[in-house]
């Protein structure tokens, strides 16, 4: 057993392949950045639908949120990867290929748009209606009110919750290896296939992810707290 222990903490193999592994980690970051953008944009749109005055819009927003918030991200990735190209292909009448990277971004982006929509909505509804009325009384139009009065406050209010969701999203990017997006986990399994040494490599991957996520998340939380405290002192 102690042999196995030393083997798994001996990270020299892991270090040997650092370049290809680091390239893999960057893929996690790419997927994260792209799907976070999609999630924020679609999530904001869904949140605006959910606070809309007319019920058909609210209904569409609710269906969107419930659909994606309750969907496991892995099956959504697989669905977008295997099914979406067939459906779109049938629609335009020819074979369609979607790059795994794009599938991953679409799937994760939409799944997390469900979570972000709820965070946005809570943030929007937490703003006192008087702030909007004061803006109206100054003659500001609705679009301007959204951009200048509502969103800046929403962003500050939703930050702690949003950081948690960004962390979840980043963690979820590890599953894109399962549709052959060459992220860190994918590279790790490739190296294992040639080196046949799963212990140090899986351990190294786990520790790397832990370190990156823990320290970045803690740092971002600290910074965002400081920024918020300036206003909600």
């Amino acid at each position: 057993m102690s042999d196995a222990f030393w083997q798994s903490v001996d990270l020299s193999t892991f270090w040997e392949y650092r370049q290809v592994l680091l390239a893999g980690l960057w893929f996690n970051v790419y997927v994260f950045a792209c799907s976070a953008t999609v999630a924020l944009a679609v999530g904001l749109a869904a949140a605006l639908l959910r606070v809309n005055r007319s019920w058909p819009f609210r209904w569409i927003g609710t269906v969107h949120v419930e659909l994606f918030r309750n969907a496991p991200d892995y099956i959504m990735v697989v669905w977008v990867h295997f099914v979406l190209p067939l459906l779109l292909g049938a629609l335009i009448g020819r074979r369609l290929e979607i790059h795994p990277f794009v599938s991953a971004v679409i799937a994760l982006g939409f799944v997390y748009s469900g979570y972000f929509a709820e965070t946005f909505r809570a943030g929007i509804q937490a703003i006192p209606v008087g702030h909007v009325e004061a803006a109206r009384a100054c003659g500001m139009a609705d679009r301007l009110i959204l951009r200048r009065i509502i969103l800046p406050q929403v962003v500050r209010r939703m930050l702690p919750e949003a950081v948690n969701q960004f962390v979840s999203l980043f963690k979820a990017t590890t599953i894109v290896s399962l549709i052959a997006v060459p992220d860190l986990m994918y590279q790790v399994s490739m190296v294992i296939a040639t080196e046949m040494r799963p212990l140090p490599l899986y351990t190294g991957a786990a520790l790397t992810y832990f370190a990156v996520i823990y320290f970045v998340a803690t740092g971002v939380r600290l910074l965002s707290e400081r920024w918020r405290n300036k206003i909600y002192a």
């Binding site: 008087g130 702030h131 009325e133 009384a137 009065i149 800046p152 406050q153």
Partner: peptide
């Protein structure tokens, strides 16, 4: 018309 509210409604950000 300038309006002043009971709850001030200053924009905190």
């Amino acid at each position: 018309l300038g309006m002043v509210f009971q709850q001030f409604n200053l924009w905190p950000h």
